[in-house]
């Protein structure tokens, strides 16, 4: 049921003139995609340094809270750019993307990464004054930081794999995989 609704929504999006215009424009589509990919350097680049600082692997002599607060703004600017360009990429190829198992896994990983980030900030703010000048953050925050790195690596990988149609609906797929990818009966 949910897969049918999602596909109907994607088909409606696909039929809009904006969607057709982006996909059919070589430069527009590719520059949106290139911007999405290149912004990894800003968004994930900053995130990596925040997480590495928590793990004691980068700038251990600088307050961990300071690093986190200072890098948070450029990271969020990068995230906003990635989010907008990501929406546009989805808008350009909605029917293909909605039935990509990689896109679906990526969305799940993004939600988990978001929850992890919220938890991390809450925990950091609650206890920062006691450890911020230590080389490593407390264990529970280091787990958050390591999880963050792993989840975002997963987001990058599944994002890249969206381009591959190995498990697309027009292939022979086991029923569970077809359902997970959003395939619907003709």
């Amino acid at each position: 049921m949910i897969n049918e609704l999602l596909l109907q929504f994607a088909e409606w999006l696909y039929a809009t003139s904006g969607s057709r215009a982006i996909e059919e424009s070589f430069y527009l589509y590719n520059w949106i995609e290139a911007t999405h990919v290149l912004t990894i350097m800003l968004c994930l680049g900053m995130l990596v340094f925040i997480d590495l600082r928590m793990l004691g692997l980068a700038m251990p002599g600088v307050s961990a809270v300071k690093i986190s607060e200072r890098l948070n703004i450029p990271m969020m600017i990068g995230f906003a750019i990635m989010f907008i360009t990501g929406l546009l990429l989805f808008y350009a190829k909605p029917t293909y993307t909605i039935q990509s198992i990689w896109f679906r896994i990526k969305m799940v990983l993004l939600v988990v990464a978001f929850v992890n980030a919220v938890l991390f900030h809450k925990r950091m703010k609650a206890s920062a004054s006691t450890w911020e000048y230590e080389a490593k953050a407390p264990r529970h925050l280091r787990i958050n930081a390591a999880l963050s790195l792993g989840l975002w690596a997963g987001v990058v990988m599944t994002g890249r794999l969206i381009a591959y149609d190995w498990f697309h609906c027009y292939r022979e797929l086991p029923a569970w995989l077809g359902a997970a990818a959003g395939c619907v009966a003709d």
């Binding site: 290149l38 990894i40 340094f49 450029p74």
Partner: peptide
Amino acid sequence: SLAVLGGSVLV
């Protein structure tokens, strides 16, 4: 790796 390389350049 681009994320780490680009991050280190931008930082």
